[in-house]
Design a binder for these strands. Structure first.
Lengths: 177, 177
DNA sequence: GTCTATAATCGGATAGAC
DNA sequence: GTCTATCCGATTATAGAC
């Protein structure tokens, strides 16, 4: 069975996605995780500690996901763009939840997201030698994140965009060789 | 002198950008605008009304901004990507503030942002005939929005990306002719 | 490790004076 | 059109039992 700490962080994530930061009260998180407020406060001594725990887990997860794409058969570019556009992907869920948390005073959400995005950029750069093209790939992916955040998915069309970007990268790498 | 309503909405915007939705309490907004809580509640009868007023203004502003780019000498594509990447642009500030508001229960922030993004897409489409390419332009711009939101601006490099995208569009339009 | 009860504070909203 | 005073509910956090 999952440790209570993880269950609490899962509950926080779901509440953030459903109702934003104001919905993620200690009582609501505790209830969603099936424990009492006191039970939550045993694991995370304050709201700040809870939020920080969530950001720490986010970084571990997203770096692991980024590393994983290096071995992906479809390539890093397609893998990143795919991850970014699937709102149900566990790693994407965490990022979207963190975006909903952006701006709160308790923790530095932006710093955590910056670290995650920079890590992704480095991973992309290992397969896309032209830095401008690597940045373009990242920006398209992050645009997909933003659209996932507000729920505007134009799935079929976005698949075509992804294919176009992948082709663009392949073409450029061929020219460089 | 600016009407109090506008001053209040400006104050809300700044507070959202600085401290997220939880920092934008009625009292804080009123204080930042230089009026009392009671004074604010005369203009906006509830927090919901205040938020809705902000979203209404956002839509008017961003549609006007989109229309304006149709006459921009550098072209719609460059203009959109430029607007998206300059966090100080008034219209961009509104969008970034709205993103910080995403997920609150009082109003449908997502719907307003969707409407704004769709309007931009239509404007872009008037100059970029290939729908896949138009969507790509939009996604790059929205990626820039997201990076402006978390404060990762790589200005010089992003300018190069913008130039690359503009060239891509120009090339495609030439081929189509 | 988890619970209940409670303290202390804060936020949204109303009423009525000026 | 703006202010002060006040009420009420919600939220964070503590204390201490089990």
């Amino acid at each position: 069975m999952k440790p209570t700490r993880e269950v609490l962080l899962d509950a926080l994530e779901t509440l953030l996605l459903d109702g934003g930061s104001s919905a993620a009260t200690l009582e609501a998180v505790a209830a969603a995780a099936g424990v009492s407020k006191g039970g939550l406060l045993y694991h995370f001594g304050s709201k700040e500690a809870l939020y920080q725990g969530f950001l720490d887990r986010l970084l571990v997860e997203s770096k692991a996901e980024a590393d994983g794409t290096l071995a992906a058969p479809e390539g890093v570019v397609a893998a990143y763009l795919d991850v970014s556009s699937v709102a149900e992907d566990p790693s994407t869920r965490s990022v979207l939840a963190a975006l909903r948390l952006a701006g709160v005073q308790e923790v530095d959400v932006e710093a955590a997201l910056v670290e995650s995005f920079e890590y992704w950029y480095e991973v992309i750069s290992r397969r896309v030698t032209d830095p401008v093209l690597a940045r373009l790939v990242q920006l398209v992916g992050d645009g997909l994140y933003l659209h996932a955040l507000i729920g505007t998915a134009t799935r079929e069309q976005d698949d075509e965009v992804v294919a176009r970007v992948v082709a663009l990268v392949a073409e450029h790498e061929r020219d460089a060789a």
